[in-house]
Amino acid sequence: MKKNKQLFETFITQNLDSAYRFAYFYVKNQQYAEDVVSQSVIKALSSLGQLREPEFIKSWFYRIVITTSLTYLNKNKKTVYMAPDDLDSFDNTVDAYEDIDLKEAIEKLPLKYRSIVILRYFEGFSLKEIAMLLSENLNTVKTRLYKVLKILKLEMDVVDL
């Protein structure tokens, strides 16, 4: 327990920037992101006892950041996201995506697809870890990633799955 505390303090000191940018990606606002990180740290401190495997501290903390962000978004519905439903409507408009740049294309994705792109390619989590982080099963995550890559026109044989 005490060991976890020290471990967590070190982790936060070294990874505050990355925790912040990850929260920022979810809530898209500097102030919100700072609130989310602060609240996540408080939650993490109170539940350090649940961190069983110290080597998973990053996933453990990111999971807290994700749930905190989602709670925060629900509470402050100031940012309008696309309905987090299916990409069905997207499939019809895929052609329109060819010319926009990748950044815009990623930002237009519904949150649950966008988060997979960020977690996989920017944060370097494995698909298994992503499934855990998002509380989804592995196959769902795989299916979503394939779908998203198709839409973003990223060639799968080039992108390391």
Binding site: A19, Y20, L102, L154
Partner: peptide, 18 residues
């Protein structure tokens, strides 16, 4: 596009906490 993804990643990594 892969090249663009790398650029985006760099931009993402440049976001820093105040």
């Amino acid at each position: 596009r892969i090249h663009q993804l790398e650029e985006l990643k760099t931009a993402y990594e440049n976001i820093k906490a105040r």
